[in-house]
Design a protein around this nucleic acid. Sequence first.
DNA 1: TCGTAAGCGAGACGGTACGTCTGGTCTTGCG
DNA 2: CGCAAGACCAGACGTACCGTCTCGCTTACGA
Lengths: 209, 209, 209, 209
Amino acid sequence: MLSNGHPKPARTGRPRSTAADEAILEACRASLVDLGWSKLTMGDVATRAGVAKTTLYRRWAGKNELVVDAVAVLFDELELPDLGSLSADVQGVVLQFAALLDRPETRTSLMAVVAESTRDDALRTRIRDSIVDRQKRLVLLGRQRAQQRGELPVEPDEASAASTADLIFDVIAGAVVHRTLVSAEPVDEDWARRFTVLLLAGLGAAAAT
Amino acid sequence: MLSNGHPKPARTGRPRSTAADEAILEACRASLVDLGWSKLTMGDVATRAGVAKTTLYRRWAGKNELVVDAVAVLFDELELPDLGSLSADVQGVVLQFAALLDRPETRTSLMAVVAESTRDDALRTRIRDSIVDRQKRLVLLGRQRAQQRGELPVEPDEASAASTADLIFDVIAGAVVHRTLVSAEPVDEDWARRFTVLLLAGLGAAAAT
Amino acid sequence: MLSNGHPKPARTGRPRSTAADEAILEACRASLVDLGWSKLTMGDVATRAGVAKTTLYRRWAGKNELVVDAVAVLFDELELPDLGSLSADVQGVVLQFAALLDRPETRTSLMAVVAESTRDDALRTRIRDSIVDRQKRLVLLGRQRAQQRGELPVEPDEASAASTADLIFDVIAGAVVHRTLVSAEPVDEDWARRFTVLLLAGLGAAAAT
Amino acid sequence: MLSNGHPKPARTGRPRSTAADEAILEACRASLVDLGWSKLTMGDVATRAGVAKTTLYRRWAGKNELVVDAVAVLFDELELPDLGSLSADVQGVVLQFAALLDRPETRTSLMAVVAESTRDDALRTRIRDSIVDRQKRLVLLGRQRAQQRGELPVEPDEASAASTADLIFDVIAGAVVHRTLVSAEPVDEDWARRFTVLLLAGLGAAAAT
DNA sequence: TCGTAAGCGAGACGGTACGTCTGGTCTTGCG
DNA sequence: CGCAAGACCAGACGTACCGTCTCGCTTACGA
């Protein structure tokens, strides 16, 4: 476990095992899949990771923080491949996001941590930094591409542009999450296409104001 | 609809106290406000209601079921006052829904039970019946009014009309929920207006296909 | 003997079911055999007897009282058949008593109610009346027979005679109970014979003082 | 040995608090005095000991086991002071034993655990090791002394000597327990003297066979 | 013959304790 | 000083019984 001949750590004493970090996050995701959010326990994660509970608490303040970190990395998968048109890009990202929400580890934990964050500002910040902003990037990138393609006008007003992006983001992410988790119906190609039509039409109108 | 549905009323034995039912739900909502979802305990609800824990468990299988029933009634408040135009109706319902999500008892509990429902089909059904369908009514009603006003065409294809309604519903509810709970920013009149513009434009396009 | 002594029989209303009384005691003994004292519950007895819990509580104050009554009748079996000599009589009653204590319903319950009685005077009285005095009768009868046979002198001092009888009783009952339940070893013919030898020799000496 | 017997001391992890052990047993005895056997609860003992319930359950399987251990130590008080004659020794130990049974913590619990042991072999073994054998020692010691004094013959037959000792033990312990707890009358000097006369005479006869 | 008072089975009620589980902290000894 | 192990306190969990209390019925007596 201990690496041989790595550079001298600045601090004294035994350095933290980097292997442990990844083992814990991996174990946390596995536990989420098997048990779901509410049945997941710190003890179980520790056992799966072959690690003591103390080691978990040395790195994360509690269950919520650990799960956010464990799940956050999954949202890095989201990408915006250039499909040639704004319409295709939107449809692509919707399906990609829906596929992510279909995985049990995101499915169970995303809403749970959001729920928890309504009472815990630190957690809300952590979620925003680790998860939400990762998604919002895509919206900004998509707009930029569409503008380069001439599909969307370049907005002069910074503030107005930002708040429109926020609106778009909440509409896309909200609709997909609601369809998947609340209505509990599949986001298939048909739905994605119809949603995209709705969104792009609305987007034009929104930009016009 | 909240009742656990006893097809056989089991005419013998002491009847259940109807006073207890209401006291428990009321206590549950109070506890949600004070403690939030994750700190709420069955024992605390029982104490607040002046009732034994067993009385809770005799009626509800657990925390999730109880909270769904306790919160469901709040969604009855949602109404669709006829404001004269589709645009005003949408904007009105959006603000109304946002106000509901601003209340601590819904705020903390809605996402939590949704998260739980991803692992529990019975709970999902309960949520759909008690909460989701209550909201979807409004979309259907709004469409009907708009058609009577001539703002929307009467769609001949039943199935297609239904799935469009579902789409609209997920977009509205999703956007408001996401803005409020995930992005954690306020749904004010300005946002509601801009969202309505987007939606109505999109709606025209969606109906056209 | 089961009745708690109604000085005013309360002439009006539906009379208590006598069938229920016997069914309950029978069910109580059965439950004792199956579950033992500590696992026996009023609810289980009621169910076995095909009777409502209220019917039990209308007749007995609690588990202790019920069990004492249920078990007491078993001690009526004890008899003192005239075997021709004091020695044979003692040995006979010892074996008879041991056999009684071997039955699961007495085995489990006798010590339990005695233990309970150390904190409950009413229960102690009930035990004395229902069980202990039933056994003491045999000692008195045995002494009378032995005196008639000339094996024991007729004691003139009433008080002294009574306290000697009490002593003998505690020695016999105590030794058998202790051997059976505490030492947990069998009271067989050999033990009974050796005990009888000891007792009779001691009895002579005790009478002499 | 009261300890639960860890053959593998499991050298790893935090060791169990020895302070807790004694605090719990002490608290258990205090609770017995205040509440009696049937009202004693694990939670109350834990509270009195300033310890979590889990700490109790980590060491003892339940109420019975705990009480046996808590009470067992009291039987260590029993001694056989050399009073110069067998008669005085017997009388002394009888009074000592009676005094012990007069203490509330033994009074209530001894019969209760004996009752419980009729359905639980492990408990019976525990009682035998912790309590019964402690008392039986005294009988063996008393006999040895009497033999050294020449009051009793040295028996050549080992087995027969052992079973006579068992008989004597059941007679002494049984009589005292029965007098104290079942007949519920005091073991005073007079009773002890008369019992001793009876026993010694019987003992001579028993030895003769 | 009919009212009425007590008995009846059923089962809900407020409680208490159970034994288990988890959260988060605190010792141990080893490396 | 990090780490695995595991004991520690605190307190919620869901269950089982307790003894009491409605319910809506019998059932027997006496007016």
